[in-house]
Amino acid sequence: MRRLAVLDLDGTLTPDTLGGLLVRELMARGVCDAAAGREFLATVDGHDPRRQGFHSRIEEVYRSLGRVAAGVSVSSVERTAEEVWAHARGRLFGFVRPLVRMLEAEGFLVALVSGGPLMMVHLVAEDLGIDVYRGAQLAIQRNRYTGEVLQWPSRMGGKPAILRELAELHQACLGQSLAMGNSSSDAELFALVGLPLVFEPSQSLAELAASRGWSRVDRHDVLRVLPALLAGEQGGEGVPSA
């Protein structure tokens, strides 16, 4: 069977929150309702995805995103997203492209699974040569967003459902698959895969990783630690928490 490598995006591959950058630019161009945009940004700024209680508040973030997009043309958002990514792509962590190549060379099917807007996730995936990706999906009618959110990846159970869907679709073995991320929604994945990589975690997530034996990496050591894990040199033991 195949092996999946599921990678988070915001805070894991880039320091940015790409959905926030997109909404700021939509506001600057007068494309979306300014009040809805300010509400979304305030909601996002108040929610740290690495902290406890994230799941209980994430639905507010998604509903706010829906209000921002409601009535806006798909083409306007797509053009804006392309320009946002053209500027933000240079802020990808330096390990990202070598990591993707390493995983593919090891036979993994790399998948980008993010709680951010799908139009941004698509651009990142395309840039990195990743064919499989999922993000927050918004409903479209007559080439405009309706305001309805169809897929909520960061909602509790959201990423595990996507992981199971991908595993079934691509006939992948979860016990031999990998997940890397830094948030509470990613922690749900770590319990399901054989190779969990907890990326630059908060204290609470680091403590959970230590108690579960999940491997811990950061932007400086991931390219060194991962080959050792794949080779079994660490016997499945996690990197000690700070």
Rank of each mutant, 00 (worst) to 15 (best):
A5R: 02
L7G: 09
L7N: 06
L9D: 04
D16Q: 14
T17G: 02
L18C: 09
G19R: 09
G19Y: 07
R29T: 07
G30Y: 09
V31Q: 05
C32V: 15
C32P: 01
A34K: 11
A36T: 02
R38T: 06
R38Q: 14
F40A: 10
T43Q: 12
P49M: 11
R50H: 05
G53F: 09
H55I: 09
H55P: 02
H55Y: 13
R57L: 12
G66F: 06
G66A: 04
V68I: 08
V68Q: 04
G71S: 07
V77P: 09
V77E: 06
E78H: 13
R79W: 08
T80I: 10
A88N: 07
G94H: 09
R97G: 04
R97T: 12
M102A: 10
L103C: 12
G107E: 11
F108C: 08
L109A: 12
V110Q: 05
A111Q: 06
L112M: 07
S114Y: 00
M119G: 00
M120D: 03
V121E: 05
H122E: 15
V124N: 05
E126M: 04
I130P: 00
V132R: 10
Q137D: 12
T146R: 05
T146D: 02
E148N: 06
Q151R: 14
S154Q: 04
M156W: 04
G157E: 11
G158K: 01
K159Y: 01
I162K: 00
L163H: 03
E165S: 13
L166M: 13
E168C: 02
Q171W: 00
C173P: 02
Q176M: 01
L178H: 00
L178V: 08
M180N: 03
D186S: 11
L189Y: 07
L195Q: 10
L195D: 04
F199C: 14
F199H: 14
E200N: 11
S204D: 13
E207D: 11
A210P: 05
A210D: 13
R212N: 07
G213S: 06
R216P: 00
R219Y: 05
V222G: 01
R224H: 03
A228Y: 00
G235N: 12
G236H: 15
V239P: 02
A242P: 14
